[in-house]
Nucleic acid binder design. Structure first.
Lengths: 233, 233
DNA sequence: AGGCACAGCTTTGCATGCATTGCAAGGTTG
DNA sequence: CAACCTTGCAATGCATGCAAAGCTGTGCCT
């Protein structure tokens, strides 16, 4: 059995990956119309594969599509951010509950080791993007222990949507000299007791704590960088 | 002010809606390759809008795309069904928790009334599709009380994916002469106490009870209707 | 007999083009 | 002067066509 040409990525998938990264890093202004011709030129492809990729983003909620008018970057209202954080709570709490039942001590050791190893970098890191990657890695690793591909992919999509917000939040958190490492270690500790419910509640408290701050961070960040016309939707 | 042409649905959205319905009702055999030319002819459109719609389904996980080989109906392994049910638990439990806090008594009255009104139809209905619609309506109404659009859309996608399985399950449930109405009413009753945690646990128990039976139902249904080549993925 | 290679046919991948529609600027009228 | 209509441009919507890649069936070789 040959590996086929899995390596020869097709244009649509390549464009999709680029667009998703652009969307996650807010290369498009919220509410802004996306010009297909210009974007296809910028990406070195034609409009057909670009539109196919954009339709994937529509299904994922990164982009809105209005018949006859085209594609628009989806605005992130404060309400929607709250909804996304609640969805995140739903998925991560269930994932950690499952993970508590499934995970072997060695799995938890591995995650805790990763936390310890990144702790120094966490303290000294000045790049908020990297900060966010470290934080996100913990949550994704933990969710992976649930061994549920659906939960993992749902969570990955949510993280892509709130990444901008979380970056702003973590930047402010670090500015206060604190880190999330010890909070993460506490969650692992609860998981070791084998009480899935308690672990789930610990995760809930952790995320909702950040949601509070994120709501404030986004207000500042939005004012700073963009002027999102409060989408009437 | 004209209504614009919001009513004039564009071809891509129309095709997408049809495809999603076809996918939910398993008009494509699991693992089967989707022939673009034939399908576009059948739908009365050309391949371009069809491919755009298919790319939305790719993002939602209904369809797999392999570069150079085309689109394939995604197979539903037993493992994946379990994962989807767990994802459903995650979302519905959080939604019911939020709903318990938000919902006014009148909201719960409305849902309970709908349950009572459909109870007779539930008992006498012989169409499993209709049976499933009634059951699904309750869960979606309840989730809507969370007032979280993200949770609602995630749940709708999951329901579309497991609809076939649930239809088989509910058919068998009804054959035993029982219904889910009283289970649903019990969940509402717990919500009235205002204890979100308890309501969440009641919902969890309800779904996981059905998940047990669904796993068995799918084994039978798969054997009956399709011969899904256990996708090596 | 089994497997490999090649040829042809089918299907996908994507660029292009044209019709249609939205959008905006300028002109006209009350 | 403001509101409405008109007209031109630009961008979308989608069908089509061609090149490239996959699939299949046949015949040859081992």
């Amino acid at each position: 059995m040959k590996p086929l040409n899995q390596n020869t990525e097709d244009a649509v998938s390549a464009i999709y990956a680029q667009l998703r990264e652009m969307a996650a890093s807010f290369a498009f202004k919220p509410g802004e119309r996306i010009n297909e011709s210009a974007l296809s030129r910028a990406l070195g492809a034609s409009r057909t594969p670009l539109r196919e990729a954009l339709n994937r983003l529509v299904a994922e909620g990164f982009v809105d599509f209005h018949a006859g008018r085209g594609f628009f970057c989806r605005a992130l209202s404060e309400t929607r951010i709250q909804h996304l954080y609640d969805a995140r709570v739903a998925i991560e709490c269930e994932a950690v509950r499952q993970a508590t039942q499934r995970a072997r001590p060695a799995d938890l050791d591995a995650i805790e080791l990763a936390l310890d190893q990144s702790h120094d970098e966490y303290q000294t890191c000045t790049n908020p993007i990297r900060l966010m990657e470290l934080d996100e890695a913990f949550h994704m690793q933990l969710t992976a222990l649930s061994e549920n591909a659906e939960l993992q992919s749902l969570l990955a999509t949510i993280y892509d949507k709130i990444r901008f917000v979380r970056t702003a939040d973590l930047r402010r958190l670090q500015a206060t000299g604190r880190s999330t490492t010890h909070r993460h270690k506490r969650i692992i500790a609860v998981m070791r007791t084998g009480d899935g419910m308690a672990a789930s509640e610990a995760m809930r408290a952790h995320i909702q704590d950040r949601a509070q701050h994120a709501a404030e961070a986004v207000r500042l960040a939005f004012a700073d960088i963009y002027a999102p016309k409060e989408a009437s939707e």
